[in-house]
Amino acid sequence: MSAPDRHPAALVLGLFMVGSAVTAAAALSVAVKRVAAGREAVPVLIAVNLVAAPEEPIRAEAQVFRTTPAILAIEPATRRERSAHPRTLKTVRFLRAFPGAPPRIPHALTPEEFRTDACKTCHERGGFSQRFDAYVPVTPHPERGICLQCHAGEDSLMGVAIPIANPNARCPQCHGPSGGPPRADASLTWPTTVWPQVPLTTRDQNPPPIPHSLQFRENCLTCHSGPSAVAEIRTKHPERVNCRQCHVALDPEAEPFTRPLQDVAAVPGSAP
């Protein structure tokens, strides 16, 4: 879990950094005492000074355990059953030029959002977006720098005002005046390779292997659980957080195992 969770009683207000010239790492934890002042408890910062941050953890290992409340499964009774934009394998593939490609941005962005790369305000934690009548997909890699570096949009939707209140004005902005597929479609079909699939036989019998590359998708829960999960691949057991204990990634270049022939006489130290 991330650092603040190790100190459930602490409230992190901020970190003050000393000039990074001092390279000796003495990471002190930040804690806050609630000091009674009159009627209100006033949080006071007492310890400070994270001098050098810890070494960058191995992404492929650390990200698996990162989660937020919004991406865990929500009780069906509190979850809206219908949104205008359910997320399915079909919609997922629609937005990707080839398997594993960074998805295109299917929705309009206001000028402020487009200029300042404010995607994480929605896509880091997910939740329901009234603006687009959809559960927001959660990014498996929020720590990456600038979202627009890899995720491109449709020019006519970038940097435009969005009429939020009136669905009659709002929907045609992306779907055009007569409805239909969103304008982010255009003619982006391009001959590519087949999408990975998990055949039925495997699904029923044992934990299926991971059929896709993990690069940038180390955090499983963002697509496989939560209200914005892709419908066909939603996991029935999101509370088991160590996904890769049972589900392994496959090396597509591995040959079937055969035991190399050993000449006993050639092994040093063996009996003649």
Partner: peptide, 14 residues
């Protein structure tokens, strides 16, 4: 093997 079916759907070489 099931893994082959995943990595090489439709029997292609991938």
């Amino acid at each position: 093997f099931p893994t082959d079916a995943i990595l090489r759907p439709g029997g292609q070489s991938g």
